[in-house]
């Protein structure tokens, strides 16, 4: 395994207190794929530090995750990808994790590449590292998909002032600073996209891309395509046009969740 050589020491017991990494896996009906994701992961992370957020699956996704000894948080019903991530971010803050690595439960994101994403964040060189499948030329997705994503990545690159080639990638490593910002406001709870990166950039959070190879999905359908793609473009347009003048969500200032780690300190009050 390539992880063994380059991975930082990640196990809970070995690491100094206060530098824990949460592996966040959003999953919806992934019983066929989840095992393939978790098998390599549990060799390098303690299952206690792996969180599978089950977005209202109707299959055995949560049972499979629990079978590996992972933490499982289950939505009562399907809320979409953005909300699933948001639940994971809240979990990370609630349990005082310092870093989050997120990869999809469908096996697209090879777990052995986690160190490549995590290292710059652990070293404090960046707050968000996005794994891009387009940065190294060859991509497993179709030409049309590539063409459709191009304008969005152009806008993001220009706005942020750094090369962003794969803004929709769900393969990311985040620092606590970034997670905190995402939980406070500005994270769309339906479909996150370049607006998230631009929002983070506006909040002075450092973003970087690294090349990763992605595998095609083994089973089931992807999230993108068809009418959704058109709606997606519309949403992006509205989001980006309103971004500079948009107000904070009036609903995101609510009573914090009762927890010792949140009693005092900067995290209290952000739970929505």
């Amino acid at each position: 395994m390539p992880v063994g050589t380059s991975a930082p020491r990640l196990h809970h017991e070995e690491r100094p207190k206060g530098s824990r990494v949460l592996v966040l896996i959003p999953a919806m009906n992934e019983e066929e794929n989840l095992g393939g994701v978790l098998d390599p992961l549990v060799c390098h992370f303690s299952p206690q530090d792996i969180l599978v957020v089950d977005d209202g699956s109707s299959d055995r996704t949560p049972e499979i995750a629990a079978g590996y000894g992972c933490k499982v948080v289950s939505h009562l019903h399907n809320l979409g990808y953005g909300s699933t991530l948001l639940t994971g971010y809240h979990y990370a803050l609630l349990h005082d994790y310092d870093f989050v690595v997120q990869l999809d439960g469908d096996g697209q994101h090879p777990p052995e590449l986690i160190p490549r994403l995590l290292d710059p964040v652990l070293r404090g060189e960046s707050d968000v590292v996005v794994g891009s499948r387009y940065l190294e030329g060859k991509s497993p997705t179709g030409f049309l998909r590539r063409l459709g994503a191009l304008p969005l990545s152009l806008v993001a690159s220009l706005w942020i002032g750094a090369r962003i080639t794969d803004p929709t990638s769900g393969f990311q490593a985040l620092s606590k600073k970034a997670v905190l910002e995402l939980c406070t406001d500005g994270f769309p709870d339906d479909y996150p996209d370049i607006d998230v990166l631009i929002h983070l950039h506006r909040k002075n959070i450092r973003i970087r891309e690294v090349p990763v190879a992605m595998r095609p999905r083994l089973h089931g359908q992807t999230m993108h395509g068809g009418w959704k793609a058109i709606y997606y473009y519309y949403r992006m347009a509205v989001c980006l046009l309103l971004m500079p003048i948009r107000r904070n969500s009036p609903y995101r200032r609510q009573r914090p969740m009762e927890d010792d780690s949140l009693g005092e300190g900067p995290l209290g009050g952000i739970y929505s």
């Binding site: 948080v73 909300s83 948001l86 979990y91 969740m257």
Partner: peptide, 20 residues
């Protein structure tokens, strides 16, 4: 829109509390 927001955040909160 308000109801959507609230039901979504409630669902997330319930999920976290259940795990806890």
């Amino acid at each position: 829109s308000r109801l959507t927001y609230r039901s979504r955040s409630l669902t997330r909160r319930v999920a976290l509390l259940e795990e806890e």
